[in-house]
């Protein structure tokens, strides 16, 4: 009757002021246990101040095949970067 525990993706906030970052995954029967396990697995050396857990099958991801069409539009718009514009030295920092 054994059923494998579901997989959870773990996100940890390294320190106050930073966003949560994906650190890995683990198995747990529910969210509460996933947080407890994440504490033991991913924060044994003060790596975090906050943990998020998300069931792995709830994550939707972009497909690697669409990489071209997804990101190409931004590649041609270099004027979106501040360095595109030359500002004279006399004006000072801007």
């Amino acid at each position: 009757m054994s059923k494998e525990w579901p997989l959870w993706e773990i996100f940890i906030r390294g320190q106050h002021g930073l966003s949560h970052r994906h650190v890995g995954s683990l198995h747990a029967p529910d969210a509460e246990m996933a947080i407890k396990n994440a504490r033991d697995v991913y924060t044994r050396r003060n790596e975090g101040v906050s943990i998020w857990v998300v069931k792995a099958n709830h994550i939707a991801a972009s497909s690697p095949d669409e990489k071209g069409p997804l990101y190409e539009p931004s590649e041609s718009k270099i004027y979106r970067h501040p360095t595109f514009f030359d500002i004279p030295d006399e004006v000072g920092s801007m």
Binding site: M1, S2, K3, W5, P29, D30, M33
Partner: peptide, 8 residues
């Protein structure tokens, strides 16, 4: 493992 799963 089974007990925790059943509880969840």
């Amino acid at each position: 493992r089974d007990g925790l799963m059943a509880h969840a």
